[in-house]
């Protein structure tokens, strides 16, 4: 039986891990390679680096981090952040990463996902979706929003993509919208419909982050996770909001996610990966121990 995956995520800026990581016995707790090794030893199933380096000129730094990591750690490695072109993807894969996670570039040009999947295979194209609950505006306002957003996203005028806008609301009259720029910029796109579209264009996996829950430590947005997991047939990684091990359990059971991504509960050593897996195993969730 396929094991559910536990994936620690490291935010890397200019080659250094930025959020606090409090492992003991690390020579350098800011070095992504040292931390990757520590998670490897704990039995992490995969590792994700989110490159938050602001300038595109400094992309070489993350390539070097990937190269050094792939010499030491033999598990799947995903890199996200600032990936804009086929060349960016090629450089990362060549350095030793297995999957790339694409967020903003997919929103600005959905066909980029198709081109990337055709070139490198769906298995290495992860689409990251940042979703947030919003109150939908009435029909007239919607038309205005589409006009507004089409200035930056010309593709929204294509018939193929029209259905992505405002598909419906949940029982509280809310729906999930795709945001970019760390949850600051709404794109008026329905997050569930977007996930389905990304699968259709060739994404091999969805990394789904609730911007409402991110950093709250009160658990994943289970409804969102469930809605996306049920809508697509590719694996879904739940992200945003883990504060304890029960949250991971909920995401993988009620939320039906295939994998759980978490950052702070592992970085601050509240729990080890092994403890998380033991907790899940006791409750009947298949994990690799």
């Amino acid at each position: 039986m396929l094991a559910r995956r536990i994936i620690p995520c490291l935010d890397v800026k200019d080659g250094r891990v930025v959020k606090g990581v409090s492992f003991v016995n690390l020579r350098d707790a800011g070095d992504p390679v040292e931390i990757a090794k520590a998670y490897d030893a704990q039995g992490a199933d995969e590792l994700t680096f989110l490159d938050i380096t602001a300038s595109h000129e400094k992309r070489g730094i993350i390539i070097d981090v990937v190269k050094r990591t792939s010499e030491q750690v033999f598990m799947p490695l995903t890199v996200g952040g600032g990936i804009k072109s086929i060349d960016d993807i090629r450089a990362l894969l060549k350095a030793g990463c297995d999957k790339v996670s694409i967020n903003t570039s997919a929103v600005y040009d959905p066909r980029f996902i198709k081109a990337a999947a055709e070139r490198f295979g769906s298995q290495c194209i992860v689409v990251a979706i940042d979703a947030k609950r919003t109150v939908p505006v009435p029909d007239a306002g919607r038309a205005r929003q589409i006009t507004e957003v089409s200035e930056k996203l010309p593709w929204v005028q294509d018939d193929e993509f029209r259905s992505l806008f405002f598909q419906g609301v949940d029982k509280n009259g809310l729906h999930w919208e795709v945001f970019t720029h760390g949850g600051r910029q709404p794109k008026y796109i329905d997050a569930v419909a977007w996930a389905v579209k990304m699968e259709e264009l060739g994404a091999g996996e969805i990394l789904l982050t609730s911007m409402d829950q991110d950093g709250q430590k009160t658990g994943y947005d289970i409804e969102l996770t469930r809605a996306v997991s049920d809508a697509v047939s590719i694996p879904v990684i739940a992200s945003g909001g883990v504060g304890n091990l029960d949250h991971i359990y909920e995401g993988l059971t009620e939320g039906r996610a295939d994998a759980a991504l978490a950052a702070s509960i592992f970085h601050y050593k509240e729990y080890t990966i092994k403890e998380a897996k033991e907790y899940l195993k006791e409750r009947g969730v298949p994990v690799r121990l």
Binding site: L2, G284, P286, R288
Partner: peptide, 14 residues
């Protein structure tokens, strides 16, 4: 409910 068989088969298996 325990296992939904998604494709690709991605992850750790025995």
């Amino acid at each position: 409910n325990e296992q939904i068989y998604k494709i690709p088969h991605m992850g750790w298996n025995r």
